[in-house]
Simulated assay, not measured.
Amino acid sequence: MFVLPTVLARRKRTAAALLVTGGILAAGALGPVAAADPVQLPSLGSAGLSIPGLGSLMPQPAATPRLASVANFRDVAGTDGGYVTTTGRHLQRGVFYRSNALTPDAADLKTLEGLHLRAIYDVRTDQEVAQAPDATLPGVKYVHIPILAGDLYAAAMAVRTPEEAMKFMQDMNRSFVTDAANRAGFEQLLTDLANTPGPQVFHCTSGKDRTGWASMLLQSVAGVPEATIMKDYLATNDYLAAQNAKTYQSLVASKGQAAADALKPMLGVDASFLQAGLDQIKTSYGTVDNYLTAGLGLDQSTLAKLRAKLVR
């Protein structure tokens, strides 16, 4: 099992919360970064998963709100008319939302209630949840699906250079493919998203790594082009820019310049993070399609339900 180091003493909780808020998620080394050709994200609609007539004709909802206290809250389908698929169709907005931890202020809580969410999927570890529990939304089902395990603070503190931080993040994305427990978590998440009616949101701590991977999978199921998927993944750096700048300055003050610079790559995302996981898919399964079916164990019915929700 892909496990982060054991829990530290409660006296380190404040520093741990700071690091987790900044998205410093790291794990033990899984070996050197292997050079590989960028994997081609297949259009699943043209790779054996095409189900004619399943696209929704629902009207697009109003623009997804930007939340002041939940900075990385956004729609998996993108903005405006929704991302365009390789077949020229559009993703349906207002179905699946992605986010960082749902700890909104009063104004943002009211906005979230107005989205009529049916379910919240929290993929953080037990320790992350204990440090910053999600807000309770009336009538919304809360489902905890832990992906990754262990003490994120201890893992972060093992990093000594920016290069090590980059490698840790790349290794984490590889573990979404190689680690059975992580694959089981993503399988449960996608299955629940497929079978639960109404708008839903899934999130980790900063909404960028585990959440970014799940978003990539949903967009791949819908047939979104690989360039669009990567652009959406990297948009985290814009959404979290202000928050990450504050976290970085806090790290400088508490840990010193050298430590802050070493940890800085963990605050945002880099194309190499997602690409490392995609390259691992190519090595282990050949295609995203095979990863979804052979790796996660999703059946064609579940994938068809997801595509029906995602594409209009």
Rank of each mutant, 00 (worst) to 15 (best):
Tyr97Glu: 06
Asp192Arg: 15
Thr6Ala: 14
Leu267Gly: 00
Asp122Val: 01
Lys12Phe: 06
Val311Pro: 02
Val140Ser: 07
Ala262Ile: 09
Thr205Pro: 01
Ala101Asp: 05
Val252Ile: 14
Asn290Ile: 02
Ala47Pro: 06
Lys167Met: 04
Val7Glu: 08
Arg74Pro: 07
Ala235Gly: 05
Leu112Thr: 05
Leu109Met: 13
Ala184Asp: 11
Asn173Val: 06
Phe96Gly: 13
Gly48Met: 03
Ala194Gln: 08
Tyr142Trp: 05
Glu187Ile: 10
Asp192Phe: 13
Ala71Met: 10
Asp209Tyr: 07
Ala241Asp: 04
Val177Tyr: 14
Gly286Val: 08
Arg183Gly: 08
Ala35Ser: 04
Ile281Cys: 09
Leu310Ala: 02
Ala35Lys: 03
Arg307Pro: 02
Thr79Lys: 09
Val129Arg: 14
Ala26Gly: 07
Gln300Ile: 07
Ala271Gln: 13
Asn100Glu: 08
Gly198Trp: 08
Arg307Ile: 01
Lys12Met: 00
Ala222Asp: 04
Asp192Glu: 15
Thr6Phe: 09
Asp80Cys: 02
Ile281Ser: 04
Thr79Phe: 05
Pro42Ile: 07
Arg210Thr: 06
Arg124Lys: 11
Leu152Asp: 02
Ser46Phe: 15
Ala36His: 07
Val39Pro: 05
Arg93Val: 06
Ile145Met: 07
Gly88Gln: 14
Leu41Thr: 11
Thr196Ala: 15
Val76Asp: 12
Phe186His: 04
Gln170Met: 14
Val20Leu: 06
Leu190Ser: 15
Ala194Ser: 06
Gly81Ile: 05
Thr64Ser: 13
Gly277Cys: 10
Ala180Val: 08
Lys110Ser: 12
Ala9Pro: 01
Leu8Gly: 06
Cys204Gln: 03
Gly277Gln: 14
Ile147Arg: 04
Leu190Glu: 12
Leu54Trp: 01
Asn244His: 01
Gly45Lys: 12
Asp80Ala: 12
Val33Ile: 01
Ser46Asp: 15
Pro138Phe: 10
Ser215Phe: 13
Leu310Ile: 03
Ile120Glu: 04
Tyr239Ser: 08
Arg307Thr: 03
Val95Cys: 09
Glu128Arg: 05
Ser272Arg: 13
Tyr153Met: 01
Ala17Lys: 08
Gly256Ser: 02
Asn195Trp: 15
Met216Glu: 12
Pro65Ile: 12
Leu303Pro: 00
Leu30Pro: 00
Met216Asn: 11
Ala155Cys: 03
Tyr291Trp: 03
Gly212Trp: 11
Asp126Lys: 02
Ala214Gln: 06
Lys208Gly: 02
Ala29Ser: 06
Leu296Gln: 06
Leu8Gln: 10
Gly268Ile: 01
Ala107Phe: 08
